[in-house]
Every structure is written in C-alpha cells, then in structure tokens.
Design a protein around this nucleic acid. Structure first.
Length: 593
RNA sequence: GCGGGUGUAGCUCAGUGGUAGAGCACUUCCUUGCCAAGGAAGAUGUCGCGCGUUCGAAUCGCGUCACCCGCUCCA
C-alpha cells in the first residue's frame, strides 16, 4: 500500500469514526452485525442532509419560475423499467471468468479453439498463495511461454499487491488437459474458464401484492428520473407551464451494487436529487427564433434566452449547478469531466460529470446529461400514450416558412443523422414524419438532466470540512484539534449557546433566554457543562459555525453600555465580537439560511 | 464475486487458554471570569455472530456477518 493510500485510508477512518462518535452516520442494523451497503443518519447527519435537501429544493424549484416539484413513489409499474431499458439490459445471464472475475454476457461468448491447461494453484515469494485449481484456455497458435506469462499477469491483477511482482509468481502443477474446438466455456479475452450462467440484475426485486407470484414482480426504483418522465404529461397538463420548464424530485433509489464501497459513497440505498429540464428541439428553436445560438467560451449564461438550443441549456445547467456547489462550500474542490463520444450512451448528446475530491479519490457527485428526446420517446413508444406538447408559437412561426425553407431544415437534419457516430440514423421517412408534426407545433421535448447524489454530497461536505490541527497546550502537551469547517448554510447546528459559568443562576437564566429566542428560527444547541473552551471545541468538531457566550458583561456588571450584549464567537479563526441580543437574529439568520 | 486485512467500553486500542483492561469520551457533585483546566465519585462489555475443541475460549478450529485495502463491478 502506498503512503498516500495509507494516509487517505487513515483520514477516511477518522471521518467514519467522527461520523459515528458524534451522530452523523451509523452503520445500519449495527446491533445485528450490520447490513451490507446501507447506512443510517444520526441526529446531526439527519440535519445536515435536510439542509442539503432544502438548499437543492430551494435553488432548483422554489427560487425559480420554471421548475416544478414532484414526489413520486418508489414502486412503479414494472413496464417503466422495460421502457427505460433497465430490465432488458440486466435480465441477461452473465458468466464470470474464474481467473479475473470479469463478467461477460452468456450469449456473447464467441466460440474458441485451443488447449485447456490446468494449474493446481500459484504462489509468490511474498508468501502469497492461490490454493485453487485454475483452468485456462491456451489459444491456438499461442506460445507456451507467452501463455504462462499471460496467466501470471492475470493472476497478479486479481490478487492485487499481496502477490508481489508478476514475474516472480510461480504457477503450480501445470497439466495439459484436452484440446477443444468451438468452446464457449472460456472468457474471450482472458481465456479463463467461465462459471455457470447466472442472472445479474442490479435492480432490487420485490413483489407488489401479498400473493408474491411472478406476475407481481416489480422493482425498487434504481433512479428517480423515470418517475419524472412517466408523470411528465400530468405535470404539464395540470400546471399551465410552457416548454422550457423543469420537474425536480428528491427521493430514494436502490441498486444492488456488487461492491458497496467507500462508506456512504456507493451504497445500495441512496437518495437522489434530480432535475429533468425539458426544452424545445433545436429545430423548433430555429423556426421560432430564426437561429440557434452557438455556445462559445465565456458565453453569457446568467439568463436563459429564447434562442438557446440544447448546448447552451446544457452549459447553463452546468453553470447553475456549479454556483449551487459554491453556495454550500464545495466551490474550490470541484472538477469537471466531459464525457467523450466513446463514453456517451447512444442517445446522449453530452454529459459532464461534476467530480469532487474525496479521501479515496476524485469521484462523481453529479452528472449533467443532455439526453435529447430519448426518455420521453421511449415512454411514448412503450405506453402508447403521446408525450408530445403543442406549441402555438412554433406552429405560427412554421406557418410562415416557405416550402424551400422547410425542406432545408429537413435536409440539414438528414445530414446530421447520417453523420451520427453512435446509434442508428433515423430513416428519412421517420424524419419527414417528425418534421410534419413539428411544423404543426407538436414535438416531444428534449431534456437536460442534472442528477445529483444527496448522500455523496453529504459525504463530500463532511470530508472536505474535516480539518485537524496539532496544538500544544501550556504544559507542552500535544493534542489534535478536529474542526469541521462546514458552511453555515449546511451545518447541522447553527449556534451553540453557553453561559460562561453554570453555577451563576443569572448567567444560566439569560443563556436560556437567548437559546429560546434563537431556537424558533434555527437549530441551536445549549451547553453549560465543562469549561467554556471545551464547549467551543465540542461544537467545532461538529461544524457549528457560531458560539454565543453569556458572560458578566451581558448582565451589566461591566457597565450599562455592555448590558444585554453577548460574545459571538466564530468557529473558523475563533475571533469574537460583542453583539446585542436584539441584533442576534438579524445578524445570524442571513448567514445560516 | 476473488485475494489480503480488521472486528474487545461511545471512540482509539492493549490483552497468546485461567477473575475483561487503559487513555479519551460520558453522568453526578465540587471548583472554574473565554478556546479540550483541576478534584471526587460513578456508569458503561452478547470480546461481531454461530458451532466446535477444552475442566476452562476474547485467545485454538470451522462457518458466517460487517467494514477496510487491492482486483472486479458501477446501466
């Protein structure tokens, strides 16, 4: 293990430990030995998550005129998952390479010729041992030495660091078995023997209805997005909105991850915050506005314009989401990964991953995809219900076009279809039908999808707020001070209220008064035990941004001008100021919400 | 799923077959005039879980669960 990995692992362990010790995150079902890949949020974690949820909901729906909210159920008609492609892709039988555990679709194994070679195991000078019969196909024409080298490499890659150097691995009990022709029992790339075909579906299956027969099978949703698409028409018809507009949703989703990993980062039950923002197809924008604005570096993305096509809308949402992260204190640690044409799904036009620095690496927080009309079209096809909207402005603008202008639009699209790198081009007849509908003002909206993981965001917030400093006290004793530098907006506790001493009833009474005053407006924590410094430290550790201390000045003992003022202490830096009790709310509220 | 590691108090960990421990944290009292002060007393354990070996298991064996690391997976 490298030093970096060790340090990062140690850091992660400290974070996990803090999360448990102070009530942010617990292991699920801990008293029964836990439950793989699921986590519970304790009192402070629940507040933190709630603050993030509220921040997202406000930024994405309440503070905007063009986004509506939705709260759909987790269980849905399984036909939705057929339409979305989730069922088909993953109902496949998979076979696993016994050597590398690479999975391959059972019906996608090409027949191979060669000689089956068996080994009884392998060992390395490091003391590492593989005590298992290995069966590998030596391909026709492969030299025995290069074959052995290949097997060692494959074994090493699976064993990880424990096996040491590849060339020092010793293969044991090599024996030639039989020659085979047209065998489909070996992995096409590695040549390792394949295990039995097994279904491999990452969706959590359940039964809707007490009889629990095969006909009752449905799934816990693997993403919240599909519910938005499935309810698109209802929202559109009931809300008097016009495209472009969005539907936002926050909710749980479930995936049977093979390997849940990295604390709450990849868990089997998680919460998503997704926006589906519906826009006009570029062709409609062109007809209405006469042009589709092109994006260029430095383009003004502050206010949406009528002539924006998908590209500018996509850039706009990347910009909006970046501002959101800046607003919760993650501005400085973000990275962006623009998916290459190879990465992209065939229906996607662009996708950018917003990544964040975690102790275990730079990982995805949010994906912002331009998905074209794929999702709504899929549901239109599978449900048989139209997902088109009617746009009167488009119809009127199209009516003014000459036949030549219309044909030019069609030709432009046909050329674009032809130039497609992925997926099948749309047949000309279908393109013409599509334009016919468009010229009448009808189209299936296209979509930009910013999709964020709430649990990941919470973990990113905690991990990036975590700071340790070494301090030496008067007696030369060193100790490590932990401060969670949470942005005040997301901090679970906003203010700690402390009487300087607890054995002076006047201080306690005044502190209780201040506590009651603030508590109605924000999460406040009252603490009178231990020394004042310790109480500050306790709150620093859970990220409370402000501390209020009621002292003898508050009581007026140092003169009337300081009466009813308190010490307001700032977590980062520890500086203090005197604030009138009557000014506290006005000062704190804007900072914490 | 494969390989390696870990699991003992809330946290960090010590404990190699014979009465379950330390530091920190926690509770109560005293003391304490601003950044983890001091004193006194106290509470806290299915030693991850199960089975086995043994007169006796935290300790040995087998199984299992969870977490961490490396592969793999991540639509």
């Amino acid at each position: 293990m490298s030093n970096d990995t060790k340090n990062n692992t140690a850091l992660m362990e400290k974070i996990v430990s803090l999360c448990k010790r102070r009530g942010f995150i617990f292991q699920s079902s801990e008293i029964y030995g836990g439950c793989g890949g699921v986590w519970d949020y304790g009192p402070l974690g629940a507040e933190l998550k709630r603050n993030l949820r509220t921040a997202w909901w406000n930024a994405m729906t309440r503070e905007r005129e063009d986004v509506l909210g939705l709260d759909a159920s987790i269980l849905m008609n399984p036909a939705i998952w057929k339409a979305s492609g989730h069922v088909d892709t993953f109902a496949d039988l998979m076979r696993e390479c016994s050597l590398t555990n690479k999975r391959v679709r059972a019906d996608h194994v090409d027949p191979q010729d060669g000689v089956i070679m068996n080994f009884t195991g392998a060992e390395a000078p490091t003391g590492w041992k593989l005590d298992r019969v290995i069966s590998v196909l030596m391909k026709k024409g492969e030299h025995i030495e290069s074959f052995r080298k290949r097997v060692r490499t494959l074994i090493a890659s699976n064993a990880g660091e424990a096996a040491g150097k590849v060339e020092e691995i010793v293969l044991l009990g090599e024996a030639k078995a039989e020659a085979v022709e047209g065998s489909t029992d070996f992995h096409p790339e590695t040549g390792g023997a394949l295990g039995p075909a097994r279904p491999f579906n990452l969706m959590l299956k359940t039964y809707l209805g007490p009889t629990a027969t095969e006909a009752d099978v449905t799934y816990l949703r693997p993403e919240t997005a599909q519910a938005i698409f499935a309810q698109f028409k209802n929202v559109f018809d009931s809300s008097r909105v016009k495209v472009p507009f969005g539907i936002g949703q926050i909710g749980k989703a479930f995936r049977n991850e093979v390997t849940p990993k990295n604390f709450t980062f990849r868990s089997r039950e998680f919460e998503q915050m997704e926006l589906e923002f519906f826009i006009k197809p570029d062709e409609a924008v062109e007809i209405i506005s006469g042009e589709v604005a092109a994006w260029s570096e430095g383009a003004d993305l502050s206010e949406p314009k009528p002539n924006w096509g998908w590209e500018l809308w996509h850039r706009y949402w990347v910009d909006q989401r970046t501002k959101f992260y800046e607003g919760i204190g993650l501005g400085g640690v973000l990275e962006y990964y623009w998916q290459t044409p190879d990465d992209l799904a065939h229906y996607a036009r662009a996708c950018v991953d917003i990544l964040c620095d975690f102790p275990f690496g730079t990982e995805e927080l949010e994906g912002i995809a331009a998905r074209g009309e794929f999702d709504l079209s899929q549901h239109q096809k599978h449900s048989g219900k139209t997902q088109e909207v009617f746009d009167e402005e488009l119809k009127n603008a199209a009516a003014k076009l000459s036949d030549e202008q219309k044909e030019a639009l069609i030709q432009k699209r046909l050329a674009a279809e032809k130039a497609k790198v992925k997926g099948e081009p749309m047949p000309e007849a279908d393109v013409r039908i599509w334009f016919e509908r468009l010229f009448k003002g009808n189209y299936v909206p296209h979509v930009i999808e910013p999709s964020a993981g709430l649990d990941r965001m919470a973990l990113a917030i905690i991990a990036n707020a975590f700071t340790e400093t070494e301090k030496t006290d008067d007696k030369g004793k060193k100790e490590v001070i932990t401060v969670l530098k949470l942005h005040p907006r997301v901090a679970p506790i906003k203010v700690g209220v402390f009487p300087l001493l607890k054995n002076k009833p006047e201080l306690v009474a005044k502190a209780r008064e201040v506590y009651a005053l603030l508590k109605k407006h924000m999460n406040v924590f009252y603490d009178e035990t231990a020394s004042i410094g310790r109480r500050y430290a306790r709150q620093d550790e859970v990220g409370t941004p402000f501390g209020i201390t009621i002292d003898f000045e508050t009581l007026g003992e140092k003169g009337p001008e300081l009466q009813d003022t308190v010490t307001l202490r700032h977590r980062d830096g520890g500086e203090q100021e005197r604030v009138k009790i009557s000014d506290l709310l006005g000062k704190l509220l804007p900072l914490v919400s």
